[in-house]
Design a binder for these strands. Structure first.
Lengths: 329, 329
DNA sequence: GCTTGACATGCAACCGGTTGCATGAAAACG
DNA sequence: CGTTTTCATGCAACCGGTTGCATGTCAAGC
């Protein structure tokens, strides 16, 4: 069902049918009604490709993430979708599998049929990112490239709060259980732990970098106990969850014997005890990035935005005063 | 950079440039090389819309799910993407928010620019689904509509195993905490509970349908306790997790006082106590559905496929013999 | 040596919309 | 009542590819 068939049915020119949908104010209300009615009856839908071809507008966005299945991203995906939906945009989702080449491939495939791109935690080099940003409006999440609009989640601020909170509760020696050494977030978090601890005159022991997982958390427990720490800050919630399980396994009570803090707040209050952690704000980041993108797309003006989302400590039940520990000794 | 500019640069007709990419065997190898070289140098990329307009092929698929953030779906999304990627397709992702109208809207938006659709756990009516399936190749996941290719995760088999296991452990009265009434999975699970219970001569109480969530699980606890059930089967893991928390809150011990079984195995062994649940196979379902779709798209033949993936009970620590309950009475 | 065929390339229509400009009729103006 | 303005609609070019058919060339076949 094409525009010409509708035009023929109504007895008007194709341009009138086109305008009945895209510029109804140009036509008499009566004609608009007649055309729309006929279109409705005939089941006419404007052809997306034809429209995109002549207008250059596709009505699509692309979102590329390293790993859909990582619980950090789904809330972000959701809010990007939601925001795009409000403006009638469709969203392509790409999963780069943490691989820069796959990321490049996806961006190439998408760029021909989208107005803008949200690129989350990219693995690509700065140069390549810049190259894509020159061709299409592009907003970064969790990557700091000067000149390209970016939304950064500063987990350091929340981790610093966590350390300060632990200090205030009387903990003098805390452990940081690292994530992957190549991770920007890990660097950020570890630095925040060390800096805050130094300021507050606390001892810090740091466990070697590892791929974050439930099992990694379990393995970290020995390190914490043997290191004599009374509190542990884990790279992420999954690691913290593994630690919780292993502490329980060994009869070490949390938070009475040892305090545990996670990071990213992806498990909510669903652990037992409910995990004290650092908020993630991934959903907000997605929302802000998308709004930024839509704004750039409409105004065509690229401002050098660097939007930083601070994170905060979310106190639940895996932290308690260190004083309690002394009872056991 | 258009095809004409490349043609002019090389001194050939636009059709030769077109063929250099889509039908190189029609041209002399030398011409193909010359054209490709020039195109490369000029940075020419075929215009996606123009190609789609004249060929009717977009190279896109759509995947619509009720809730991206529901941990059941990310593995499925991931495998659909992966499978699509192998055949150079881009994937639109839609989030229906469990709302049939939103689902309809998304399908309408997508259908103009995709070759096929994977529709997971749709909330739409059979008629609407059929209507869309008539227009575009469409494969369903977790919805059983005759005549439309579908991949079904038979959680019924696993749930039946669960009920049999509970019966074997001495439970005589069990509760089923429902999911959304429009959900095919919910119907299936509830039916499996009722059927197996009837066969084994158990009592069943069923809690009214609801949107599955942690909070819904918390609210379900009163129903279970007041209903006098000694075991509960929840619609999904998230609901079960909420129940676990609320039971703990009320001083009801799991599994000693009451047994809890989840469904979908999305939280693994990370709850406390580790949740007994039913395996999900969502990733496999996504992969199979996408292969089926791609197959239909290429062969243009719609076979009435009904692919069933059986599930199984995964016993962990939230189930125990009912005999333990008597001690408290 | 002339015909036939194979093969490489060009021509032009087509996909289905959008849009600047032209046209014609009715309304407003003097 | 004639002229100008306004407004609704039509015309035709254009977006950038694809593709059936026509054309021209050169080699093989008789």
């Amino acid at each position: 069902m094409t525009i010409d068939q509708v035009a023929a049915a109504v007895g008007v020119n194709r341009s009138s049918v086109s305008r009945a949908f895209s510029r109804p104010e140009m036509l008499s209300p009566e004609t608009v009604a007649r055309i729309r009615e006929a279109a409705e009856k005939l089941g006419y839908t404007p052809n997306h490709s034809a429209r995109a071809l002549s207008t250059g507008r596709h009505g699509n966005l692309a979102l590329v993430v390293p790993d859909v299945a990582n619980p950090f991203f789904p809330p972000m995906i959701r809010s990007v979708q939601n925001e795009a939906d409000h403006q009638d945009y469709c969203v392509f989702l790409g999963n780069s599998d943490e691989d820069p080449r796959q990321e490049e491939k996806l961006l190439g495939r998408f760029s021909g049929q989208v107005e803008g791109i949200v690129l989350a935690s990219p693995r690509l080099s700065d140069e390549r990112i810049r190259a894509f940003a020159e061709v299409k409006p592009l907003v970064l999440i969790n990557r700091d490239v000067a000149g390209i609009p970016r939304v950064l989640i500063d987990s350091g601020s929340g981790v610093a709060e966590a350390v300060a909170y632990l200090a205030q509760q009387g903990h003098r020696r805390i452990a940081y259980v690292s994530g992957p050494s190549s991770s920007w977030s890990n660097k950020q978090r570890r630095a925040a732990v060390k800096k805050t601890a130094a300021e507050l005159d606390l001892d810090v022991i740091t466990m070697a970098a590892q791929v974050p997982s439930y099992e990694a958390g379990q393995r970290a427990v020995s390190f914490v106990l043997e290191g004599g720490a009374t509190a542990a800050v884990a790279f992420d919630d999954l690691t913290a969850q593994g630690m919780l399980a292993e502490f329980r396994e060994r009869g070490v009570r949390v938070p009475r014997d040892v305090a545990v803090v996670g990071c990213d707040d992806v498990v909510g209050a669903t652990t037992y005890p409910a995990l004290t952690t650092v908020s993630n704000r991934a959903g907000e980041a997605g929302q802000i990035a998308t709004r930024l993108l839509l704004d750039i797309m409409t105004t065509r003006a690229v401002h050098d935005v660097r939007y930083v989302l601070e994170t905060h400590l979310v106190v639940r039940e895996t932290t308690a005063p260190a004083a309690a520990n002394r009872r056991q000794g």
